[in-house]
Write a protein that binds this DNA or RNA. Structure first.
Length: 191
DNA sequence: CCCTGATTCGC
DNA sequence: GCGAATCAGG
């Protein structure tokens, strides 16, 4: 892949938005984050690195509007999540919405408002992932392992997903998908 | 271990 | 110019 104008523009845009190099690379496709970083540097879009060096770099842009107001974008990953509706993984084995209300043997779920609609895609994904889950035990849980419980805690066949978590989240990507939902739009997922 | 950007240097 | 490898940090 080459750096076409469009790709460079997208790069600039995303970088300006504080997106990480890996995210940009992922979006662009065909390039690694290294490529993105390299390009960023060549474009002179370098960030103010706080590597202890004197950041006496004053950026003087004659730009009318500089939409950059991050105090210290050390971890720009933390974007303000839109309102989310956490769905506690009460039911160890996510079942299809055949029977709506399921009372798990373990802990009683807090009164679920009603709608428990999870996108079929997400559910399907979970089912697939479940096969590949590491099936780790409670002891093996770390900060980076998906803590989604599978099975009945009261029985032998109980484990945790254990796949790499999505950064910042307690679950892997698939399980994040069913645990967190955008407030208003359960419909349409990008990608 | 996961991630981040920064830099180098052969291509 | 490009980007993998490496470096330095969280």
């Amino acid at each position: 892949m080459s750096w076409t104008d469009e790709r460079v523009e997208l790069l600039k845009k995303m970088w300006g938005e504080g997106q990480s190099a890996s995210q940009i690379a992922k979006e662009l496709g065909g390039v690694t984050r290294n490529a993105v970083i390299g390009k960023v540097h060549r474009l002179g879009l370098s960030n103010r690195a706080g590597s202890g060096a004197s950041p006496a770099k004053a950026e003087a842009k004659a730009k009318p509007a500089a939409p950059k107001a991050e105090a210290k974008p050390k971890q720009p990953q933390l974007k303000t999540e839109p309102a989310i509706k956490p769905v506690p993984p009460g039911q160890a084995k996510p079942n299809l919405p055949a029977r709506k209300q399921i009372i798990p043997a373990g802990q009683p779920l807090p009164p679920q408002p009603s709608a428990n609609e999870i996108s079929p895609e997400a559910l399907a994904k979970v089912n697939e992932v479940e096969k590949k889950s590491k099936k780790i035990g409670l002891m093996e849980l770390t900060e980076r392992t998906c803590k989604w419980p599978v099975g009945d805690p009261a029985t032998e066949n109980f484990w945790f997903c254990g796949l790499p978590v999505q950064q910042g989240k307690p679950y892997c990507e698939a399980h994040v998908g069913v645990a967190f939902q955008p407030m208003s739009s359960r419909r349409d997922r990008r990608r």
